[in-house]
């Protein structure tokens, strides 16, 4: 369904080219839930932006439903069925939650239908439909509205960038159900979730670990999970060691 072939992405960093994504090839098959994880700054969000068309790759091709979409605009890709929930949702002065959900649905939804989407992300719909998507919303509220708009799109491919960030525990549990239900209800639809959360990793059909702009590891969760855990333990040990060394140096200077 979605295929990235040898994708590279370079930015200009004070005159020097900086590779943020290096020769990444991944496939998101039909009806699957893929979770992308990996250390901060590894390139996960950049990958999502490349899929949505917000950034254009400096190398490689992107295929969606068998079509080469590398040169297609954000709007064209959205209309072909790619939806993207931002890691940091955007605020708008004057645009109401209801307006945003209607735009996402691409039709004049009834207020009741719009409320369904809000309820499924744990927002008491009546309190929110008329609110403006502006600075008055809390981070968690905004994040949930962002997820609701993507649900309203019923897209063939839905990409969620750290949907759990800032969301309370109770709503988080429901969120897992939302993703499960999504997988069941959207025919041939696939979901790509960027996450650091164990419980989201747990519902994945496949896990992709992105590190330093590269695919570090990829496979069914049973295969990847042990490495993730080992990696975490190793990282903790390293960090700890570095910390002790730094403290030692500090002591010597003093």
């Amino acid at each position: 369904m979605l295929e990235l072939k040898n994708i590279s992405f370079q930015v200009d960093d004070e005159g020097k080219g900086k590779e943020i994504i290096r020769d990444v090839s991944i496939t998101v098959p039909e009806s699957k839930l893929i979770v992308v994880t990996g250390p901060n700054g590894g390139g996960k969000s950049t990958l999502a932006r490349l899929i949505a068309g917000i950034e254009k790759p400096t190398g490689g091709r992107i295929f969606f439903s068998g079509e080469d979409i590398t040169e297609k605009t954000v709007t064209e890709r959205a209309r072909m069925g790619i939806a993207y929930a931002f890691q940091q949702p955007v605020r708008f002065k004057g645009i109401r939650v209801l307006d945003l959900i209607r735009i996402a649905a691409g039709k004049t939804l009834s207020v009741a239908d719009a409320c369904e989407y809000l309820s499924s992300v744990g927002l008491c719909a009546r309190d929110y439909v008329d609110r403006e998507v502006n600075a008055s919303l809390s981070g968690g509220e905004l994040k949930r509205i962002e997820i609701a708009t993507v649900l309203a799109r019923h897209a063939k491919l839905s990409v969620f960038d750290e949907p759990e960030a800032g969301i309370d525990l109770w709503s988080f549990r429901n969120l897992i159900d939302v993703f499960r239900r999504m997988r069941e209800t959207i025919e041939k639809g696939s979901i790509l979730i960027i996450s650091h959360q164990e419980r989201i990793l747990n519902i994945a059909d496949e896990i992709i670990v992105i590190k330093d702009g590269n695919v570090d590891r990829q496979g069914p969760k049973e295969a990847v999970y042990p490495f993730l855990n080992a990696g975490l333990v190793a990282m903790d040990a390293l960090e700890c060691e570095g910390h002790i060394r730094a403290m030692g140096q500090g002591g010597a200077q003093a």
Binding site: A52, T75, P89, V90, K93, I103
Partner: peptide, 22 residues
Amino acid sequence: IKLMTLGLTEAEAEEQIINGFL
């Protein structure tokens, strides 16, 4: 960009943003 990822063209997105703002 956000509104374009929801399927609007750039001109449509502009119109929505201004309508909301005013």
